[in-house]
């Protein structure tokens, strides 16, 4: 139990260190840099073009399908971690269990492909 917390103690130290690194870098930047804003400097940089419209707008529903596909395969990937750990012990059965699991999800991907939601027309 102690080693468990020690292992994550290293992780916690890394987390604190990385937050401190970003905070110090941006804090030092804020203290050292000159601050002379002009309207030109404050506009959004869009490849040298003047930005069109506002940054806040309704997005296309197509993006939602991509986000949802990501969620589905994210959930799938969660099951791959415990599976990878016991794969060698259980053997062929574990392999086919995962084949069925991914196969069922692949039907969904095939459906998405057939319906053309993966294509940007």
């Amino acid at each position: 139990m102690t080693t468990y917390f020690q292992a994550y103690g290293t992780f916690a130290a890394l987390l604190v260190l990385s937050i401190a690194f970003v905070a110090v870098a941006f804090g030092a930047n804020r203290l050292l840099r000159p601050n002379r804003p002009t309207p030109g400097k404050l506009t959004t940089y869009e490849s040298g073009m003047d930005p069109v419209g506002t940054t806040w707008s309704q997005t296309q529903i197509r993006y939602y399908v991509f986000a949802f596909l990501f969620v589905i395969f994210d959930v799938e990937s969660v099951f791959l971690f415990p599976w990878a750990l016991v794969f060698a012990d259980i053997g062929v059965a574990a392999f086919w269990e995962m084949v069925v699991f991914i196969g069922v999800l692949a039907i969904g991907l095939l459906y998405a492909f057939k319906k053309g939601v993966l294509r940007w027309a």
Partner: peptide, 26 residues
């Protein structure tokens, strides 16, 4: 161990649930 030895059917049922959610979203 318990997921892939004892609870295989519920595990496979999860894939069907995810499939239903995906098709529903599309």
């Amino acid at each position: 161990e318990s997921l892939f030895r004892n609870y295989v059917l519920p595990f496979e049922a999860v894939s069907v649930l995810l499939l239903a959610a995906l098709i529903g979203a599309i």
